[in-house]
Nucleic acid binder design. Structure first.
Length: 549
RNA sequence: UGGGGUGUCGCCAAGCGGUAAGGCACGGGAUUUUGAUUCCCGCAUCCGUAGGUUCAAAUCCUGCCACCCCAGCCA
């Protein structure tokens, strides 16, 4: 048979399984799953997991269920499942079924009784603290629970009583009977059911005992017919346990196989649901979908195309080495996509008025909506000779090689004319208030006229009377130093950049911290904001130099 | 310290015994009405380290070093 060419080590494993005939019982069908816990919004780290799983699904023509791993009722809610479904759909991933671990509670309970019947599980009366104390350490074995050798009958009776609500939270647990001396702490009789008199967002108060991840996950995989259960590296130590459950639960081959990969880390990006939730709960951001958040919803609001995110994941690859990808790599993917797809618009940050003293009247100029895309059409922009330009585009004390406007120098107003700066007016505080220029009619854009007038630079502008048609939103940097609730934030979050860039618009020249000019990409949801008749873009974005620096 | 993992260019990452892909970043040049884009060109004699096997190793073997994960009734 023809196997697809593996593009990473996971697919190599899958190919090996197929070659070895391990998947023959199901006609070599490959099945994976994407199993987030609905306790928060999906973030860019999850996108990598999705790309891997949906990638396998598509490559092998397999199946993929979107499974809500909801075994902890205290943290989960419909708000999150809805957000997860939205995120998956926005990214354009198609799953076969939406399922819930909580769908399997009955089945999982039955299997638990089987484990008891087979002598593989027992009810333990030890408290949480006692279990911890008897678990042993990294170098010393644990101490077997005094309840470890209860009879099957007693265990069954007790477990049913647990289910029936006869005991308070924490009074008893169901434990797998494995090996208290195992060097793998996960194998030292792990708890598989705990008592929690907490209503579940889906099953209500039907249950007061809930299965643990280590038990529910492998069995959920087996119930669904998953063949390859792909998860992140921190579960490597759980694999023996995963196999232990799956081998004893009575499922027929092929049994699901767990394969681990390194999760995604990006410089200066917080990738922890727990902290993201904290930012939301404590009001540091406007919500999970705040454009400063690395959540799928936030990225969407930031104007990042889903294709750019998928491209990024493909570029980054899949491996087992712990790594931190430079945010520049993400920026590059976004810029590349936007360059081809974004509709252009001019906008101005830090406006300074520029008046063309020898111009009168007004005219309409043609601008390509997207010079990179054939047939994207033109937009009309009115020019009256009174415009705002960005303060950064004018310098009283220009550094060497400065290409933009300076006193006595020339520059092209993009799509319009070359102008020469004749004079500068200052306000009481000595700031540049108005720049007076003369223009050269023969230099009109697109006229093709031969003229000795040259300009080294091209700058964007916004007409003082008409503004422009873009919209923008203003956002503060995610956090200031003194606002850090915990130091962990400081290591991952953006504190330096002045703005965050969202949306779609014209690339824009900006000076970076070291004074070196660079090209930024304005993207975003721009909002009309009139100030002196012009559109003021106070939120710019620097995809080139990193909006997450 | 016991166990499980990982170490290839500044950052990711291919490579699976035959003599170091690619992307990002960076440097140089050409085009350019966005200092962008596009376009060339450059960028590891070397694969954590020390030995060994082999005609031949990043790839096999041995020792060592570094880093990550594990002692939740979270996932």
């Amino acid at each position: 048979m023809d196997l697809p060419e593996a593009s990473n080590f996971i697919e190599q494993f899958i190919n090996e399984d197929i070659r070895a005939g391990k998947l023959e019982p199901v006609n070599n069908r490959v099945q994976v799953r994407f199993p987030p816990e609905p306790n928060g919004y999906l973030h860019i780290g999850h996108i990598k997991a999705m790309c891997i799983n949906f990638g396998v699904k598509e490559k092998y023509g397999g199946k993929l269920n979107l499974r809500m791993d909801d075994t902890n009722p205290a943290k989960e809610d419909y708000e999150y499942v809805n957000s997860i479904v939205d995120a998956v759909k926005w990214l354009g991933f198609e799953y076969d079924k939406l399922v819930f671990a909580s769908d399997y509670y009955d089945r999982l309970y039955e299997i638990a009784e089987k484990f008891i019947l087979d002598g593989n599980a027992y009810v333990c009366d030890l408290s949480a603290a006692e279990i911890t104390a008897t678990r042993g350490t990294l170098t010393e074995p644990g101490i077997p629970s005094p309840y470890r050798n209860r009879t099957v009958e007693e265990n069954l009776k007790l477990f049913r009583e647990m289910r029936d609500g006869k005991y308070p939270d924490g009074a008893k647990t169901l434990r797998a009977k494995i090996d208290m001396a195992s060097p793998n702490l996960n194998m030292r009789d792990p708890v598989i059911y705990r008592i929690a008199h907490v209503p579940h967002y889906r099953t209500g108060d039907k249950w007061c005992i809930y299965p643990m991840y280590d038990y529910a996950h492998p069995l959920s995989d087996a119930i669904e017919g998953v063949t390859h259960s792909l998860c992140s590296l921190e579960f490597e130590n759980h694999r023996p346990l995963y196999e232990w459950f799956v081998e004893r639960a009575g499922f027929s081959a092929p049994l699901p196989r767990q394969i681990e990969f390194a999760r995604l880390n990006i410089t200066n990006m917080l990738m922890s649901k727990r902290y993201l939730k904290k930012l939301v709960d404590e009001g540091f951001v406007r919500g999970w979908d705040d454009p400063r958040m690395p959540t799928v919803a936030g990225l969407k609001n930031r104007g990042v195309p889903p294709e750019a995110l998928k491209k990024f994941c493909a570029d980054v690859g899949v491996a087992k080495a712990y790594s931190v990808v430079s945010s520049a790599q993400l920026d590059s993917c976004i810029r590349d996509n936007l360059n081809f797809n974004a509709e252009r618009a001019m906008a101005v940050l830090n406006p300074v008025k520029l008046t063309v003293t020898n111009y009168s009247g007004e005219e309409e100029l043609d601008f390509e909506i997207n010079p990179m895309k054939e047939g994207s059409g033109v937009r009309k922009i009115k020019f009256t000779g009174n415009v705002y330009i960005d303060a950064d585009d004018f310098s009283l004390d220009p550094p060497p090689k400065y290409k933009r406007l300076q006193k006595g120098g020339t520059v092209r107003l993009k799509g319009a004319y070359i102008v020469r700066c004749d004079d500068v007016l200052f306000d009481e505080e000595g700031n540049v208030k108005q720049i007076l220029c003369t223009y050269f009619p023969e230099t009109r854009s697109g006229s093709g006229a031969e003229t000795p007038i040259k300009a080294k630079g091209v700058i964007q502008w916004v007409d003082a009377k008409y503004g422009c048609d873009a919209e923008f939103r203003r956002y503060q940097p995610l956090l200031k130093d003194e606002q850090y609730p915990e130091q962990d934030y400081g290591e991952r979050l953006n504190t330096e950049s002045e703005q965050i860039c969202f949306g779609k618009a014209e690339p824009y020249l900006k000076d970076s911290a070291d004074g070196k000019p660079f090209q930024a990409m304005r993207t975003g949801y721009f909002k009309k904001c009139s100030e002196g008749g012009a559109l003021i873009l106070s939120e710019i974005v620097s995809l080139k130099d990193g909006y997450n620096k």
